[in-house]
Amino acid sequence: MNLFRFAGDILHLLSILVLLLKIHATKSCAGISLKTQELYLAVFITRYLDLFWNFHSLYNSVFKVVYIGTTSMIVWYMRRHRNVKLTYDRDHDTFRYLFLVAPCAVLSLLINARYNLFEILWTFSIYLEAVAILPQLVLLQRTKNVDNLTGNYVFLLGLYRAFYILNWVYRFATEPGYSAWLVWISGLIQTGLYLDFFYYYVQAWKQSKKLQLPS
């Protein structure tokens, strides 16, 4: 465990909490992609399947439970809460799950470290996490005026990924034999998807203006 990894995990948690609190406080999920949230839930469930038999550390186990729990709550709010579900922007959140899930499933069958169910599901979760933000980014682009909390949510998520890259660099430099090509490449692609958003987020922040994405 290094400081970059720790900062990454905390930022990830913070991003989810920002979103959950926004929904809870405003009773609105306007601008939030349910598709992205459900894809993240699928990512967490397929990756953290090992929770019950593969104990690594209390730290990891607590985070796994919290990530699954908080993301389930977001999905529950958006699908089931009597007021929140009415604010869901389903007409603009039209990205097809299959476009992301199918290629990731095929890729995880073709490129994995070991050919067994647990390993393939874990690999699938790595690939799926890399692209799960896409429905959210598309929705942001369509709704134009991005409210502050939604913007901060995506920014914190991107920052979390950036810190994971620093963590890998640090681990590569300090841990003999550490390598994780599959995770590195997926992670670089994932972080790359945020660059465009980052650019506009920083511009808006520098000019202290409301974040607006170009069409």
Binding site: R5, D9, H12, H56, S57, N60, F63, K64, Y67, W122, Y164, N167, R171, E175, P176, G177, Y178, S179, A180, L182, V183
Partner: peptide, 10 residues
């Protein structure tokens, strides 16, 4: 054995 892997990450 194999070196440390990314499985200890979240």
């Amino acid at each position: 054995g194999r070196g440390a892997s990314a499985k200890d990450e979240l």
